[in-house]
Nucleic acid binder design. Sequence first.
RNA 1: ACAU
DNA 2: TAATGT
Length: 213
Amino acid sequence: MTTKKYYAVFKGREIGIFTSWAACEEQIKGFSGALYKSFKTREEAEAALGLTDRALLFQVEPKEVNLWKTQNKILPANEFIINSVCVDASCIGNPGEVEYRGMHTATRKIIFHKRPMANGTNNLGEFLAIVHALAYLKNQGSHLPIYSDSETAILWVENKKVRTKLVKRDSNKEIFDLVERGLKWLENNEYTNPILKWNTAYWGEIPADFGRK
RNA sequence: ACAU
DNA sequence: TAATGT
Ligand SMILES: [Mn+2]
Ligand SMILES: [Mn+2]
């Protein structure tokens, strides 16, 4: 008897888990740069795609592992870690109404979304998005890397310090309170997730983008 | 100049 | 076109 296999497709026409070789092949045959792997159980396949909190127990292709361990924040053109979380912020006016969200890069599943906050800046939103991802992933026991397109926000997270010029007002108390909470979280928690620069020029808009530009 |  | 940031 042949054992059923589960195919995790990382790069292909469609991203996801397929339960037959035929279905998998449809996604990867003739697809340049296709990346996939078979697993014995659905759980392993889901974990490999980063859909569960045991992702690291089933780490995937050597190529991906090497990329994972790189210290470089900007990887070579057309090489990014699809088994990752990406974040982005968007605002209507700057300063203005700021929201942010995080998404699993491979599947485009939205994993968190902060509703708009009044009178914030783009950079505060980008900062909060990264910190939210760090806290979320730590709670999940996940070491997945985090992509942001914001040089400013990445720096602020690394420094555990924001250098916003925005003046505190009654109207932006919510976002400043959240920033304060984020900074406290960074002070009081360790994290293992690499924070990587999304290279928009090579790869196009970060998948978490709100599509308003 | 670079990144949003 | 204008603002947020290094
Ligand atoms: Mn952005
Ligand atoms: Mn965006």
